[in-house]
Design a protein around this nucleic acid. Sequence first.
DNA 1: CTACGATATGGGGGGCTCCTCCGTTTGTCC
DNA 2: GGACAAACGGAGGAGCCCCCCATATCGTAG
Lengths: 202, 202
Amino acid sequence: MNAAGPAGRADRRRNRQRLLEAAEAVIERDGAQASLEEIARRAGVGSATLHRHFPSRHDLLNAVFHEGVERLGRRARELADSTAPCDALAMWLEELTTYTTTTRGLATALLSTPDGAIAAEDSCHGLLHHAAARLVADAEEAGVLRTEVTVHDLMALANAISLASDGDPDSAHRLLRLALGGVLKSSPAEHPPLSRAARNAP
Amino acid sequence: MNAAGPAGRADRRRNRQRLLEAAEAVIERDGAQASLEEIARRAGVGSATLHRHFPSRHDLLNAVFHEGVERLGRRARELADSTAPCDALAMWLEELTTYTTTTRGLATALLSTPDGAIAAEDSCHGLLHHAAARLVADAEEAGVLRTEVTVHDLMALANAISLASDGDPDSAHRLLRLALGGVLKSSPAEHPPLSRAARNAP
DNA sequence: CTACGATATGGGGGGCTCCTCCGTTTGTCC
DNA sequence: GGACAAACGGAGGAGCCCCCCATATCGTAG
């Protein structure tokens, strides 16, 4: 395994580290679909080595953003313990979107699940989901969440917003607050299911 | 120009049509980053021909979705003329997200501007923006929009939602209604700008 | 200090992509 | 029917991803 623990050969760890640094730089410039070849080149290793360390692009992205994501996880626990549920949730989501919008590629990476598999527990996706779950549960218990909002919904929404505002955190924050507070002043007239009509229309 | 009008040579128009059909099929299967080579192959033309008709991937996507987008534009006018502003806006956004989520690749295409240039007036982006503007203006005049919601905000939000719910219209609709109605029951405690604290935190 | 086996490496190659050049074919108008 | 502009298509350069396997390196046991 690539557990990166102190086990394994020294050069392996060294190369892994170099790859991560190179990846961080290139991803910052080119986003989630940076060239793996260039990353390997920049790290001074062969492309095969990159693939041995990170079998898929997703693995690489997970590793690159792991640290930041863990920080967000800790922050969630911190907020949950120190702040009123409603504010804790809102603040954390704001911090989350700040991170995902300023980090080129993370949002994209998070949005697409590892391809079929349910998000692994220690993937970025899994870690964030876990962190959010606590905040959502608290907010729900306090009765401040509107209807049946799921953790999944919120994460999807937050990610989508980051993705949509393409690198501009201010824009992302506006959209987030909009979504949290609601776009319309009143519920849109309780329009009945309307599914039939709307779904066939366009 | 590739105006596709009745002017120009017959084979040109014929090839353009074939390309569009092939593109529609391949994009439906592979999304916005479908292989241009395969599209050309499937249309029975050389890859150079594809590039002559559609210099960039964006141009091709615009052309493929042009019809559907125009339909949505007409629908917007129709709703604006027949329905209360608030409902008109909500219904149109629902129809929009239905279309963008069920159409693999459109959302992605719409999200990324033609690369630097301001959305051309007759691009999908431009057309939808224009259609939405009318509905937003009406809603604003009727006083049903919360705060300074811009057309741009709404389009970004709708696109983000489509993108996030990845092909599942029901999920998209849930998120949309959530965003329109608001996630939280009350505004999140009027937290002051909070920009400083939140922005540096993670 | 050395020798050895497990481990990790990297270059090269196959198969794919995008895009452009340029000789050739085709449609149209007289 | 012929001439000329317009459109075409294949070949080829540059890149990318990923895998194979001969080779170099590490860490340890003697």
